[in-house]
Amino acid sequence: MKLDDKLYLVRFNTDTLNHIKIKNPDLCLKCKDKVCTFICPAHVYDWDEEENRIAVGYEGCLECGTCRVACTDDNILWEYPRGGFGVSWKNG
């Protein structure tokens, strides 16, 4: 099964507020490995070639917290979605 299809199985109560921000997009331009684009288990981060920046699809975030720890430049401001919003596991 493709990752997109797996993510389709996850239950979300999506917040209208984005809980993930790139602190300084300029740092991403110089970032070699762009760890965020592959280490996120939900593929929330994508390098946008046209706009030359990281695109963040916060709606699909599984709230593991990996990205903020993995970013080599400490460039991700990740907070919890507001109470009751975000992922809501069915089994856990």
Binding site: L3, V10, L62, C64, T66, N91
Partner: peptide, 9 residues
């Protein structure tokens, strides 16, 4: 059949 995909630290 996959029922759920999850991630955690």
């Amino acid at each position: 059949e996959i029922k759920e995909y999850l991630a955690h630290l």
